[in-house]
Amino acid sequence: MIDIHCHILPGVDDGAGTVEDSIKMAKKAVDEGITTIIATPHHNAHYQNNRLKIENDVEDLNDVFRQEGINLEIIPGQEPRINAELLGQLENQEILTLCNQNKYVHIELPSNHIPNYTQSLLYELQLQGITPIVVHPERNVEIIENPDVLFDLVNEGVLTQVTSSSLIGNFGKNIQRFSHQLISHNLTHFIASDAHNVSSRAFHLRGAYEQVEKEFSVKMRYQLQENPILLVNGETIMTHPPEPIKKKKFLGIF
């Protein structure tokens, strides 16, 4: 398995605090069957992790894992928070595309709303040949309240990634239910761990894929497991036409 979203780099954000923490995470990942991780440290107002720093830290961590005999490959990535200057930051090479391929980039939205420039910015990224991947949309309050916002983005070519812990219910039943809706309506394309440690924010990637197979189908599990491989190889992601999530009636009215 490939995990495209993980905070395994030590001492750079709210993920692994030390190299020892990174080693613990790596061993747990290998136990789950993960062979490759895209390291995606936060890049926002609180954590400044630019392209060069991430690339150097990834190289150092791979050296540590080789010395420890841990069969896990770390690839450079980033989790930039959306902001009005993001296109300029990308041009200045402050923003790091996934696997350094200039094809895909993670985009983190604020937890409680969607900035009014989001649609135009994500469209501009696509005009530059870069496909944005909105991470953990199932935890965004505005998207939960109005899923049509996400439908419009996906309908325009944006990809999304749900978190494994959301799918298995670690963020609560409502977020679990909504995550399943995103899958059933073709509104997400990846599952990733967003792991920060081995306890409160662990991987749970195998469990999430098993749940997808149980709730949906082996075919759906295969597609969601295959897409990270396609991403790392710089190939086109498998998608299906998105469907809007219809709001349930309340007392007979919408």
Results as ranks from 00 to 15, higher is better:
residue 97 T to W: 05
residue 98 L to E: 04
residue 250 F to L: 14
residue 144 I to H: 09
residue 235 E to Q: 15
residue 144 I to F: 15
residue 231 L to Q: 03
residue 217 S to D: 09
residue 142 E to I: 02
residue 220 M to P: 00
residue 181 Q to D: 13
residue 212 V to F: 01
residue 63 D to N: 15
residue 235 E to A: 13
residue 187 L to E: 09
residue 220 M to L: 06
residue 122 L to P: 01
residue 180 H to I: 12
residue 243 E to Y: 01
residue 47 Y to E: 10
residue 211 Q to T: 13
residue 248 K to A: 11
residue 89 Q to D: 13
residue 98 L to R: 02
residue 234 G to T: 04
residue 90 L to W: 15
residue 189 H to L: 07
residue 42 H to S: 09
residue 245 I to T: 09
residue 150 L to N: 09
residue 212 V to E: 04
residue 32 E to M: 10
residue 110 P to E: 07
residue 196 H to E: 06
residue 5 H to A: 02
residue 75 I to H: 02
residue 13 D to W: 00
residue 230 L to Q: 10
residue 49 N to A: 07
residue 208 A to N: 03
residue 150 L to P: 04
residue 222 Y to P: 00
residue 11 G to W: 11
residue 83 N to G: 08
residue 200 S to T: 15
residue 132 P to G: 04
residue 58 V to C: 12
residue 111 S to H: 14
residue 202 A to M: 06
residue 230 L to S: 03
residue 81 R to P: 00
residue 5 H to T: 02
residue 205 L to G: 02
residue 71 N to H: 15
residue 181 Q to S: 14
residue 218 V to I: 05
residue 85 E to I: 09
residue 127 L to Y: 15
residue 117 Y to K: 08
residue 132 P to D: 06
residue 225 Q to C: 02
residue 155 N to G: 05
residue 204 H to K: 11
residue 182 L to V: 13
